[in-house]
Computed example of a mutant assay.
Amino acid sequence: MTHARPAAAILSALLVATTLSVAPARSAENDDPIRLTLHDWTGQLITTRIMGEVLQKAGYNIEYVQADYIAQFAGLKTGDLHVAMEIWETTGRDALDEATATGKVENLGDSGMLAVEEWWYPSYMKELCPGLPNWEALKSDACAEAFATAETSPKGRYLGAPVTWGGYDDERVEALELPFEVVHAGTDAALFAELESAYQRKAPVLLWVYAPHWAPRKYQGEWVEFPKYEKACYEDPAWGSNPDMAYDCGKPRGPIWKVAWSGVKDKWPGAHKAISAFSVDNDEMGGMITEVDLDGKSVEDVVAGWMERNTDRWSGWIK
């Protein structure tokens, strides 16, 4: 992961304490708060709040902490942070591997969701860029111009995610010699507001879209098919079409992982068991994200509805 921040700024760079919720202790091993990290996309807020609510039902003291997606690993290693509910195979694998190799961070298994994060375009753009979804279509000047804006012309414009998400898009453009300029959205909301606007106007747009999410459910479109990811692509410049540069392939795909400070299993063994048992699938999560982002419901209300509908399920996690 290229955008990780220095570990020296653990608390000042990545910790902002937010909501503190306390439930009457029933089965918790101690009263110390379990700190769950919150990030900047809707699905992660939902999974974290669900886990927090379930742990509260078991009597645990829960604290939610706003944290940078990659920089949070510094706090997980030291035990300043305790649980991160979504580390995506697509963008977080490098940081996860480094952290777990220290023995200070533990992978608690997959969340039940499978991640896709890749360049995406609306179906109406295929007429303007023949050859899609094959990535090589993007190498033509005509396709670049089809995706260009006044600011990037004659280069095409690719709207990437917030820089803190990682993903190596700038490196990918350079390694694959694509005539595109990467422009990073400031927030998750800005990213999809631009998609909404472009799609309604049938305007050119090429951007980072991920699943589980409402966007690929609502809009007709496709992900660009880059050379299939292999670990060597990110590590060995000799791999792939560009013998001198890494990242000449697409992003990896795979599970969304749950991770924790390695001390959780000893300090809160019941919580450790519950977090390990947590599981939701893509369709379920996509529906909840839709309720928040498109239907205007609050995360808290959507989580409360899920808790009410799934009592038997989450009760099994904390038995």
Rank of each mutant, 00 (worst) to 15 (best):
M1E: 09
A4W: 13
P6R: 04
A7L: 13
A9D: 15
I10S: 09
S12L: 11
V16P: 03
S21L: 12
V22K: 12
A23W: 01
A25C: 05
S27Y: 11
E29Y: 08
D31N: 14
R35P: 01
L36C: 08
T37P: 06
W41S: 02
G43M: 06
T47V: 13
R49P: 04
I50V: 15
I50P: 04
G52M: 04
E53W: 02
L55T: 02
Q56P: 01
A58K: 10
A58F: 09
G59Y: 08
N61H: 11
I62E: 06
I62A: 05
I62L: 05
E63L: 11
V65R: 05
A67D: 02
Y69P: 06
I70P: 00
Q72F: 03
Q72D: 01
K77Y: 01
T78P: 00
G79T: 01
L81E: 01
L81Q: 00
W88Q: 09
E89N: 11
T90F: 04
T91S: 13
D94M: 07
D97I: 01
E98D: 13
T100G: 09
V105M: 05
E106R: 14
N107F: 03
L108K: 08
G109K: 05
G109S: 03
M113C: 15
L114D: 12
V116P: 00
W119A: 10
W120H: 02
Y121M: 05
Y121R: 03
Y121P: 04
K126C: 00
K126Q: 10
E127D: 15
E127L: 12
L132K: 03
P133V: 10
P133R: 07
S140T: 15
A142D: 10
A144R: 10
E145F: 06
A150F: 09
S153T: 11
P154N: 07
Y158S: 03
G160R: 00
A161Y: 12
W165D: 12
G166H: 09
Y168S: 08
D169P: 06
D170N: 10
E171P: 02
V173R: 12
L176C: 05
F180A: 06
F180Y: 15
G186S: 09
G186D: 09
A189C: 03
A190N: 15
A193S: 14
E194L: 11
E196N: 12
A198Q: 13
R201I: 05
A211L: 06
H213N: 14
A215R: 12
P216C: 09
E222F: 09
V224P: 07
P227N: 11
E230A: 10
C233Y: 13
E235W: 00
A238L: 05
A238R: 10
N242S: 06
M245E: 14
A246C: 13
C249H: 02
P252Q: 13
R253S: 14
W261R: 00
S262R: 12
V264E: 00
K265I: 09
G270A: 02
H272S: 14
K273D: 15
K273V: 11
A277V: 00
F278Y: 15
D281W: 08
D281N: 14
N282W: 08
N282E: 04
E284S: 07
G287E: 12
G287Y: 06
I289T: 06
K297Y: 03
K297S: 02
S298V: 00
S298W: 02
V303C: 10
A304S: 10
W306A: 07
M307Q: 03
R309D: 15
R309T: 14
D312P: 00
G316K: 11
